Simulated assay, not measured.
Amino acid sequence: MPDQYDVPDRHHGGGLGSREEIAYVCDQLEHIGAALEMYGPAGRAPLEHLLAALRDGEDPAAPLDALHEALLAAGDAAGIHGRARGLNPQGVTPATPDEWVLLCPAHQCSRHIWPDGPAAPRCRISGLPLRRERL
């Protein structure tokens, strides 16, 4: 019998699926915002609603669904739920990692990057510094 970590479930309070989707949104923030401004029926509102929900620690399932639908309406064929994830996580180039990784400070998304200097970059959603974790 699979446990809760074996089956991604984006509709139950930030499961693996929603973490991947939030990582995609974080990585593509500027592109998504520009597409919605240009072609979205409600402009950037669905993106801003998701960002506000994440900043407030709310369940992201409904805002993620709304953003997905807005992207489809704007002409994005896959939205955020249909993105194929490659072998490299969002935002990570296939470089050789060092012994530290930088992660979402709020544990809301699965995006991670390798440190490239002494100062940690900031989260694109919360503005908080990314947290360092030893591999």
Rank of each mutant, 00 (worst) to 15 (best):
P2K: 13
P2L: 11
D3L: 09
D3I: 05
D3P: 03
Q4I: 07
Q4V: 07
Q4S: 08
D6R: 11
V7L: 14
V7K: 14
D9F: 09
R10S: 13
R10P: 13
R10N: 11
H11R: 13
H11S: 13
G13N: 15
G13M: 12
G13A: 15
L16C: 08
G17L: 10
S18K: 01
R19C: 10
E20V: 15
E20M: 15
E20Q: 15
E21D: 05
A23I: 04
A23L: 05
Y24S: 06
V25S: 02
V25F: 01
V25E: 02
C26Y: 06
D27I: 03
L29A: 03
E30Q: 12
H31T: 15
A34G: 11
A35R: 14
A35H: 09
A35W: 07
L36R: 07
E37A: 09
E37F: 02
E37R: 12
M38A: 15
Y39W: 08
G40D: 02
P41T: 14
A45I: 10
H49Q: 14
L50K: 03
L50F: 03
L51S: 12
A53M: 00
L54C: 06
L54P: 03
R55F: 07
D56I: 04
D56H: 15
D56L: 14
D59A: 12
D59Y: 07
A61N: 09
A62E: 14
L64I: 12
L64F: 04
D65Y: 13
A66I: 01
H68Y: 07
A70T: 01
L71A: 04
L71P: 00
L72V: 09
A73N: 04
D76G: 00
A77G: 08
A78K: 13
A78M: 13
G79N: 00
G79T: 00
H81R: 12
G82Y: 08
G82P: 07
R85G: 12
G86K: 07
G86N: 06
N88M: 15
G91T: 01
V92L: 15
V92K: 15
V92E: 14
T93Q: 15
P94M: 02
A95L: 14
P97I: 05
D98I: 05
D98N: 14
D98R: 06
E99S: 13
V101N: 02
L103N: 06
P105Y: 01
A106S: 08
C109R: 00
S110A: 11
H112D: 00
I113F: 00
I113L: 06
W114D: 11
W114P: 05
W114L: 11
P115K: 00
D116E: 15
G117M: 02
G117L: 02
G117I: 01
P118F: 02
A119R: 11
A120V: 02
A120F: 03
P121K: 04
R122Q: 12
C123P: 02
C123G: 03
C123I: 01
R124N: 11
R124M: 10
I125L: 07
S126K: 05
S126A: 06
G127P: 09
G127D: 08
G127F: 09
L128W: 04
L128K: 10
L128Q: 11
P129R: 00
R132T: 01
R132G: 01
E133K: 07
E133S: 08
R134W: 10
L135W: 04
